[in-house]
């Protein structure tokens, strides 16, 4: 069996280190004024203050947890809604032809409207803030989950299903012991794409005006000229995006070992 945790590849750190060095040198040289691009050391200070709240450098001093958890909760809520509908409809369309014929054309038509295009109508329906954000997240995350699940479910080899039946599996057992695990790699791809999209639409939703959350911090900081804080929020979102993706992947591997299929 393959080890899940691979060693970090040092080559991957070369470009980030180089960028950081250039950033630092540009800041030192004064070519770009700090109100456009503050140096990495001041961003780092603001970041530390955002976490600990000791230096009171910005209005957000010490408010990391508050904003982070607000954003995280929205992402998880939206993602969970997308996951339930995406998996349910994905498996139904993937396995049952009449359902596919009924549902799929509509879903594909709706999909052609980009997620951002839903923002105005969402604001009309749900007002500015919380619900609009969660709505946008779940809508945007739904499509990759649905499409990949449906594709994975429809591509399960007929021979595997026959093998299961010949060994005594009934329809329900065929679903749980053959279709589900066989489609699982595709489902995981859909979930990871969906989670990535969820973070993207979180920012979009929060930019429109919520009181807490990383997107709100970014937007307010822009108005107050706190460029460091914008950059810090971006870093937070990147870190959260990676972290939640890792957790998702790790929990998926607990359900079925994906590594068993890597050829």
């Amino acid at each position: 069996m393959r080890r899940y945790r691979r060693r970090l590849d040092p080559v991957g750190f070369i470009l980030p280190a180089l960028l950081l060095a250039i950033w630092y040198l540009v800041g030192k040289s004064g070519e770009i004024p700090a109100y456009l691009l503050p140096g990495p050391e001041s961003v780092l200070q603001v970041m530390a203050d955002f976490v600990s709240g000791t230096a009171k450098l910005t209005p957000y001093s010490g408010k990391l947890i508050e904003n982070l958890s607000a954003s995280f909760l929205r992402v998880i809520t939206g993602f969970a809604i997308a996951l339930v509908f995406g998996l349910l409809m994905g498996f139904l369309t993937g396995r049952i032809k009449p359902v596919k014929r009924l549902i799929d054309p509509l879903v594909q038509a709706i999909r052609t409207v980009p997620g951002i295009g839903w923002l105005p109508i969402a604001m009309v329906w749900f007002g500015v803030g919380e619900q609009t954000t969660v709505f946008l997240i779940s809508l945007a995350a739904f499509f990759p989950i649905y499409i990949n699940t449906a594709h994975g479910a429809s591509e399960v080899p007929a021979a595997l299903i026959r093998a299961g039946k010949m060994l005594g599996a009934n329809e329900w057992k065929i679903f749980t012991t053959v279709i589900l695990p066989a489609a699982f790699p595709a489902v995981v791809v859909g979930l990871r794409l969906g989670l990535g999209v969820a973070w993207a639409y979180l920012v979009l939703g929060e930019l429109t005006g919520v009181s807490t959350g990383l997107g709100a911090v970014m937007m307010d900081s822009r108005m107050m000229g706190q460029v460091e804080m914008i950059l810090v929020s971006m870093v937070c979102i990147a870190v959260m995006g990676i972290l939640t993706d890792r957790i998702l992947l790790w929990s998926c591997r607990l359900i079925f070992p994906l590594s068993g299929r890597e050829g």
């Binding site: 093998a163 039946k165 060994l167």
Partner: peptide
């Protein structure tokens, strides 16, 4: 009328479940 474990089938390729040992 339907497949049964009483008539075990061996296919031309093994058709094993790749996620199981």
């Amino acid at each position: 009328t339907a497949p049964s474990p009483q008539r075990g089938v061996v296919f031309q390729s093994a058709v094993l479940f790749p996620w199981l040992t």
